[in-house]
Every structure is written in structure tokens, then in C-alpha cells.
Design a binder for these strands. Structure first.
Lengths: 211, 211, 211, 211
DNA sequence: CATGAATGAGGTTTCATTCAT
DNA sequence: TATGAATGAAACCTCATTCAT
């Protein structure tokens, strides 16, 4: 759960007051909107502030610089995803493989899908070097959760748990990203959950059988 | 095979003279280098030209704008990948599923891996909006190739060929991207081929059995 | 009175605060100075900002691009001229021809002469293509005012009012421009008013007599 | 007839060979075309050369720099006009005023009108500082021609011959420019000659009568 | 002589950030 | 605390001119 935020990217205020929270949230939302409607190159602090209904000055009261803002937005999103995976994984310790896959995939797809625009917007930002570390750390966390889960599978055992968990994760993340980024037709999107289950379960069963 | 390039992104000269060819290639290479060493935000036309050992003016003789340059680099890379997949897929029409997967994955991993730096660099650029169309068109092409191949499988038949081909493709692309972007440890990278085969074959066998 | 400004040339802010007004005026003045002292090709936004004592950035807060700045300067000048002609023309409805010509020419020469440097500077800019529409629209307005006036002349009547008004206008504008652009000797400039009266009145009396 | 060309603007070759003449003419024509279709800011040497069907290098064999090219084009045009006026004026020495005006205006309008595009194009260039001298010198020459003519009028005498000739000239030039630049409707253009006669004759008769 | 690839100074414009009000 | 005008470094891109072929 802990991913140490680089000092330069720390928010300025802890935003504990009600007013602050509202403002910060408006800014987050605005950033996502701008990202979607204008694209990365046109994501300027002024534009975000404008869209959020505050002045640039105010924005800079909450974030020391633009990077910090994007970092925070991404962090919020990734935390949600990480949390969802973690909760799901914990809930099926000791269950059979099929159950595990169903539950985890279900949770993952749900959290990625309930705010499609957000997910889509953030893919555009996620390659900005500074965020690589963040993405990696969240990945590690999820891998750990999935490893721990797989290790308790009622009906399977894995030689290289870390590797298998990594691939499991990548098998969920990869096609999902492809679909969301490519603005895949709704038909595909609806099929996503089932397909991911098939993909992951097919893989895990193969790996397990190799025992 | 052809993917019509938007007019604004078309190269300026076809670069037929010897000197020109050298120049253009130097620029391509420089763009990739800068992308890797400096990241997207510091990828400026001046820096690319400098690294290529030419003047900005020269760069602009071959590309009407920065976008066009990036577009061209990406296009070259994607073409190579598309070509590799196409050739591989064609070579195993009417073979059994396992052969198909082995051959295609092998080709894909090879082409992505032989210029790891290039692949890695381009992921950073691929979100610059205008490239979405390009990525999509290459995706469509590969999907078509894979569909055609799968349709001839000696030992399997698929209900929704398009969907299955799409997932097959995504199952290769997704984890590969995750690994390259996240700068996965060499150990993982070496395992990639085998893991992808497992992933794709597991999936395809499941889907085929559902006949 | 209103001449709809093309959207791309619209000023960015209406400049209502005191500080802003000062800034915008300084920029206007600076543009004219630079135009006079350096000429069109050396009229750069940087230079104008510098001369105005502000940063380029500030200039661009008020004008979306260089064209818009020049457009605004020209518009301000032409509006003044148009206003002067309109007021003068209205004031002599129903008067004899000689009075009309005297009053209108007097007003025109006065307004063109009271800021000779401005007028001179703007001739240099007026050929930058996009301003053609502006010049034309101001011309139309003046022609209308002059037409309306001539139509009420106590001692004359005209067959083709529009044509006559057009020539009247051109007879004032043309030689004035020639003089100011050619930096005619002061002696000529002093004679301008009388000469223009002679020119216009001679013409109008000829046209009127042709009834 | 002599207008000393500034050294920096002198053509490089006297272009006496047939091939040279053709090239220079093509370049002149191209410059005018580009000026009309693209406007001053987009008038580049490369574009002119391209339109002329030669390489930039060749263009620079004939003109030391861009200014020189424009200067030459303008000079050619102004010479034609000056010549036409001179010939016309000489042909009516000792004639009555009305004849003089008719003949001179006729000549002037004809020469300006037979290549409307050229005239229109050159107005755009004529304010480029360096050309002011050129325009002025041609003006002086015409004024001298007109002065000499008016001085011999059979039925009129003028107090300030220089001033009167200047205004006569301006009365022809001004409205003509206004019409050509403003792309006046054909109807006006057809009326131009008659109107100019009326304008100039009205003026001259008034001035003559003031003896 | 002709060509056109190469040059690079310099122009236009944007945008993260500050700070007086 | 909030505002938004001002800043200026730095990005993108053009184009007059040269010179090796």
C-alpha cells in the first residue's frame, strides 16, 4: 500500500478542510477532462484551472507544479485499482483456480470500467518518465497480492510463482489497455471480462499442469 | 499493406539521393536515441537534429513538422512488426494450433526484441493522439492476418474469429509492452517467448474447445 | 458602425482593468513606433513588446497573434477616420455642395494629419492581405455617409450617387496617401486641404451639371 | 528616365543572352503570380524559383538577393507607366486642357489596366521601404512630364505648376490604386477612365481659372 | 552554368510559474 | 487565501543564402 512519493511531487497541503477537498477534486476531474478533450500537449495548468473553475494561483496552492498534479491523479487511479485487486485476491485465498481468476478479473475489469474516461485519459500520461516508478511500484504490489493468492490455490501449484503472477497481471492489464486506448467497439468491451477469464485461466491451468 | 498517411504527416521528400537517405536515417536514429535518453517532453526538433548531426533546417526538409517525424518513426517500426506477423502467419496456414502459436509468437518476440531500445522508445510516443489511427490500422492488418490463419487451423475451429484473433493479438502485445516499458529484469525477458506461447495457446485451446 | 472582426483576429481580453488599458495602449503605440522606425519586415512581436516595455508573453495575452495586433491598430485608426467623416457629413446635410466639400475635406485632413506618424505607419501595413476586408468595410461605411449627404445637397443632384460618392472618397484618400507615403515636403502638406477641396469640388460640380 | 539603382539591388547579369532573358522573365512572372496567390509574407525565393521552373541557385545567379528581385519587378512596371505617361504628355503639348487630360488619363488607365494582376501585385510590395525611393523618383519624372505639358496648354495657365502637376498625378494614381487594391466591381473599373477625366479636368479648370 | 541539400539565425507562439493586489 | 496579469525561457518552424556536385 505504501509507495513513497518523491519529495518534489508531494501535494502542498494535506487538504483536510472541506473546501480544500472539493477544490482538489475539481482539479483532478478537470485534469482528466482536459486530457480527454485536448490531449497531453494541450494539458496546461491554466486550462485545468479554468476547467476546474479556479484560478491558476489557487491550483498552485495545492500542487507545487504540474508534474505533481498529474502524479496525484495517476496515483489516485492506480491506488483504486491496486486496492480492488488486493481486496479481491484476499477474498479468495484457498479457493480453486477458476474461482480465483473469475473473482480477480471481475474486480479488475469493474474498477477499470466504472470510470472508463479516467482510465483512458491516464494511459496518455502514464509514459511520462516520472510516473514509471509509480506504475512499477503499484505493479509490484499487485504481483505480491496475486502471488500470495495463487500460492494458496486449492487445486494448483506453480513452480515460478513470481513469474506466473507477473504474467497473470500482464494478461489482464495488456488487453484491457489495448481495448480502452484503441477505443474498441462496445461489443468488444462487453466481451472483455469473459475473454480475460479465458485468457488467464487457460494460461494458469497450463502452467499449473507443468508441475 | 498500405495505411494511408494523413496529409499533414506525410514526409516532405522521398529521399532518393544517397546523401538524403543517410540524413533521413540519421534523423530516425537520433529521434529514437533522444526519446530513450531524454524522454518525450525533452524530445525537441532541435535536439533530434543536433543528435543526428544535421541542422534543424535539414530536418524540416524531410518532415513538415515534429508530429510527422514521430509518425514516420512509429510507422517504420509498426510496419516491421506487421510484416513479421504477416509472413509468420502465412507460413503456417493449415498447421495445427500449437505450431501456429509457436511460430507467430516467435516471430513477434523476435522482431520486438531485436531492437529493444526502439520498441521501448516508441511506446512513449504512441500516446500522442494522432498515432491512434496508425496503431489501429496496423492492428487491423495483423488481426486480419491472424484471423485468416486461425481459420485454417488443422485441429480447431472458432465461433467468433474476429474476437479471438483480437485477443490473440492483444495477448502478445500487452504483456510484451508491460515488460519493455517497465524495464523488466532480463530474466523475465528471456522467459517472455515461452510465457507468451503458454498464454496464447492456453487461451486458443479453451476457445476452440467451446465449439 | 460595427465591422465584424474575423474571429482569428479578435483581441483576447477586453482590457478593462486600469493596468491592462495602459499595457494595451503602450503596445499600440510601440507597434506604430516600430513600424515607423524599422519598417514592416523588422516589425516583430518581440521588438514591439520590448519597445512597449512589456514581455512578449504579455503582448500575447491581449492579442492572439501578430496579425491581430496589426489589425487592431489599423482598426482603431480607420474607426477614427470613419467617425470623423460621418460626423462631418451629418453636420452638413441639406447644405450647398461647396459647404459639404469644405467641411468633409477639413474633417478628413484634420484626422489624418493630427497623427501623421500613425497614418504613415499604417499605410505600410495595410497591404498585408487580411486587412483588405477591413479597409473595404470602412470604405463602404464612409461611402454610405457621403452618399446620404450628397443626396441632400441644396444645389445639386447626382445620377449615380454611389459612384460619385466612391470617387469623392477616393479623391480625398488617394492624394493624401500619396503625400504621406512619399513624405511630401511640408509645403505640399500645408496646401493639401485647399487642393483637395479644389479637386473634389471641381469633380462634384462637373458631375452635378451633367444632370 | 534615369533612376540610379542602389548598388546592392543591381541585377547580377545584364542578361543579354536569349536564354537569360527568358529565365529572368519567367522569374518576374513567377514573382507576380506568387505575390497574388500567396501574399507578401509567403513570397519566398524558393517558391518563386519553383513557380518559374528553375532552381533557387539559378535565381540567385540573376539577382543578388530577394530585394533586388522585387526591386527589378517594380522597376519594370513603373518604367512602363512612366514611359506611357511621358509619351502621352509629349503628344499633346500645346493642345487644349481637355485634350491633354483625355489623352494622359487614357494612357495611364490603359497601361495600369492591361496587366491588372501585375499592378495589383505590386501595390503589395511598394511599401517595402527600399522601394520608396524608386516610387518617388518615378513620380518626379512623371510630374516633370506633366508640368512641361501643362505649361503649354492652349487655354490655361497655372500659378503653381509643380503643385498642380503633383495633384493631377495624385488624382490619377490615388483612385486607381484604391480600385485595383480593393478589387472594385467591374462596373466601377469600366467607369474609371471617364471618372478620372472628370476628376482631373474639374480640378485643372478650377485651378486655371484662379489665375 | 544549374541544381537543390544544407545551414542556422531569427521569428512566432506557448506555458509553467510567480507575486502584487 | 484567491486572483490573474506578467514573465521569459524555450519550443516550433521558416527562409534567404551558400556551395559541393
Amino acid at each position: 500500500m505504501s509507495m513513497p512519493t518523491p519529495r518534489a511531487l508531494k501535494p502542498r497541503k494535506q487538504a483536510q478542510q472541506a473546501r480544500s477537498l472539493v477544490t482538489v477534486d475539481a482539479v483532478f476531474e478537470a485534469a482528466i477532462q482536459v486530457l480527454l478533450s485536448e490531449g497531453v500537449p494541450r494539458l496546461t495548468t491554466t486550462r485545468v484551472a479554468e476547467r476546474a473553475g479556479v484560478s491558476v494561483g489557487t491550483l498552485y496552492q495545492y500542487f507545487p507544479n504540474k508534474q505533481a498534479l498529474l502524479y496525484a491523479v495517476l496515483q489516485r487511479h492506480l491506488s483504486r485499482v491496486g486496492d480492488a485487486v488486493e481486496v479481491a485476491a484476499r477474498s479468495v485465498h484457498h479457493a480453486p483456480l477458476a474461482t480465483m481468476v473469475n473473482v480477480v478479473v471481475e474486480a479488475f475489469v469493474r474498477v477499470k470500467t466504472e470510470r472508463v474516461d479516467e482510465a483512458r485519459a491516464l494511459y496518455r500520461v502514464a509514459s511520462e518518465l516520472d510516473t514509471v516508478e509509480l506504475v512499477k511500484s503499484v505493479g509490484l504490489r499487485s504481483n505480491a497480492d496475486l502471488s500470495a493468492m495463487l500460492d494458496t490455490a486449492a487445486d494448483a501449484r506453480f513452480d515460478d510463482l513470481a513469474l506466473t503472477a507477473y504474467m497473470f497481471s500482464a494478461a489482464m492489464v495488456g488487453p484491457t489497455r489495448a481495448m480502452l486506448e484503441g477505443s474498441a467497439p462496445p461489443k468488444l468491451l462487453r466481451a472483455l471480462r469473459g475473454q480475460l477469464v479465458s485468457l488467464c485461466l487457460g494460461y494458469l491451468e497450463r502452467e499449473a499442469s507443468r508441475r
